[in-house]
Amino acid sequence: MQAGLLNNRVEIWHFHETEDETGATVQQWAVFLRLWADIRHLSGSQTIKADTQTERVKASIRIRFNEKIQSGMQVRYRGEIYQIDAVLHDYQKKTYTDLVCLKVE
Results as ranks from 00 to 15, higher is better:
N8L: 01
Q70F: 04
V31K: 15
K94S: 11
R9K: 10
M1N: 07
A50Q: 15
T97F: 03
R9A: 04
R56M: 13
I61M: 03
R78S: 09
G23L: 10
R78H: 05
D90H: 13
A24C: 03
G23K: 08
V87P: 08
A50G: 09
W29N: 13
V57G: 02
W36L: 08
S71N: 07
A30S: 08
Q83N: 12
A37P: 02
D51R: 14
C101I: 05
V104F: 12
V104T: 13
A37F: 00
E19F: 13
D20M: 04
V75A: 01
G23E: 09
C101G: 02
M1H: 08
T54W: 06
T52I: 15
E17T: 09
E55V: 08
G23D: 08
S45V: 06
F32Q: 04
G44F: 08
I81N: 01
Q2Y: 10
N66L: 09
N8E: 08
A3R: 12
D90M: 13
G4V: 12
T52D: 15
N66T: 05
E105V: 07
R9E: 04
L5Q: 15
E67L: 05
I63T: 04
T47C: 07
K68C: 02
T54Q: 12
L5M: 14
R9I: 03
D51C: 11
L33A: 05
D51V: 14
T47A: 15
H16L: 10
M1F: 11
E17S: 11
Q28Y: 08
I84A: 04
T18G: 08
D85S: 07
D38A: 14
H16E: 14
V57A: 05
K93M: 09
Y77L: 03
I39V: 14
E21Y: 03
D20W: 04
K93Y: 11
E19W: 06
Q27K: 08
E11P: 00
N66H: 05
V75L: 01
L102E: 14
S45W: 07
W29L: 12
V26M: 06
Y82V: 04
G4P: 04
Q53E: 14
L99C: 07
S60M: 07
S71G: 07
K94E: 14
F15R: 09
S43Q: 00
D85F: 00
E80S: 09
M73T: 01
Q28V: 12
R78Q: 13
E11S: 07
H14V: 01
E80Y: 05
G44K: 06
S71F: 00
Q74D: 02
V31H: 03
D90G: 11
F65D: 00
V26T: 12
Q53K: 11
R62H: 03
T47Q: 15
W29T: 10
H16C: 07
Q74P: 00
A30V: 06
T54G: 04
